[in-house]
Design a protein around this nucleic acid. Structure first.
Lengths: 198, 198
DNA sequence: CGACGATATGGACACCGCGTCCGGTTGTCA
DNA sequence: TGACAACCGGACGCGGTGTCCATATCGTCG
């Protein structure tokens, strides 16, 4: 466990560290769990009303905690993003870390496709600063950027590609309609194309 | 010009070569032009009502000619698809045709991104037979498949990738928000990844 | 412990876009 | 020219979004 849930202090959009009422915190948690469940079943385009219903809460409450669908995505990604950030820093410390960049990108793909349709939103969000997922994933993005820089410096990666571009590209890869996961062999193609082909 | 506009005989969904009334044919043409104009300005997610308005026609008429948004896309793609099919056949006849597959894919990308948001729909449509764009683009897809087969046989392309996958992947590449075109260097990365790296 | 102010709630509301349907109109053919 | 078939277009119902405010609940302080 990286940290206890930040639900007590982090609302969807507002600033940091505002103490909230107990019922509000509870509803936030319930809503987030409901969103995960509904998104898993119906995909990330599911009506937010369903989420509110499953949480046993009115739509107004949902929009209070998550002003937009993007904010729900950001909240859902938080744990994974922290994990991925940590993993990127581990690789940065490892001697062969840069060469194992593909390994990290597979984990990222895995996390971004946890719910059907999520990866596209994550990829887009990361491309536009100011989006909620960009905020949430900023540490992950920073760690990945460092890792990519090193990989580039060591000649493992073509030099004309930015961190944001890599994450956006992987997020945009077509999905298997059945599983919602990135279909084969798209990720392999991209990872191959990212390499410097000597 | 490959052929005169097929508007007199081909409706959005119904079978071939049904003679239509003069006003119907006229409305079809006007609607198609309006759609191009509106999509160019507002993107392919623009309300179809706007298209109908710009065409000076009721929504009912629009839906009569194009039962779904997909059908509009298919109609818009028709000319480009014919052109691309012809080009693929040319390359098939050329001695170095297989090596010039990237060239064709750039043309395809160019055509698919002519209107903002179109490429994704085209890519998805091509992946699912029975979709209107799949029908319209069938000749193009067939010619491209032949070209890809040859490229594979000559060792230019990794063997585990299908024609549909290539077209879907290129269609899914992230776009430059400003231009609506495929952003650099995504296409280069994919083209590189498609190659057999000896 | 009771009451009061701050905060959260949730349902009602208005908006938008889609796709359908049918009464009226217009083109086409005999 | 008459009659029929095809077409037109606006009205309708549906579903989803996001906002707003009267009410209920929490937490604190006297």
């Amino acid at each position: 466990m990286i940290a206890d849930t930040a639900s007590g202090y982090t609302r969807g959009v507002t600033g940091p560290a505002k103490r909230r009422r107990a019922d509000a915190r509870r509803n936030y948690d319930v809503l987030l769990e409901a969103a995960k469940d509904v998104f898993a079943r119906l995909g990330t385009d599911a009506p937010l009303e369903v989420v509110a219903q499953e949480a046993g809460v009115g739509r107004g409450t949902l929009y209070r905690h998550f002003p937009s669908r993007e904010h729900v995505f950001a909240a859902i990604m938080r744990d994974s993003a922290d994990l991925l950030a940590a993993r990127a820093r581990e690789l940065l410390d490892a001697p062969d870390g840069a060469a194992r960049l593909p390994e990290w990108l597979r984990l990222y793909d895995r996390a971004a496709t946890e719910y059907p349709g999520l990866s596209g939103h994550v990829g887009n969000g990361l491309a536009d600063d100011g989006s909620p997922v960009a905020t949430t994933c900023a540490p992950m993005k920073a760690s990945f950027a460092a890792l990519l820089d090193r990989a580039r410096a060591e000649g493992h990666v073509r030099p004309d590609v930015t961190p944001t571009q890599v994450l956006t590209l992987v997020g945009a890869l077509p999905k298997d309609p059945a599983t919602g996961r990135t279909a084969e062999p798209y990720l392999d193609v991209v990872l191959e194309g990212l390499r410097i082909t000597t």
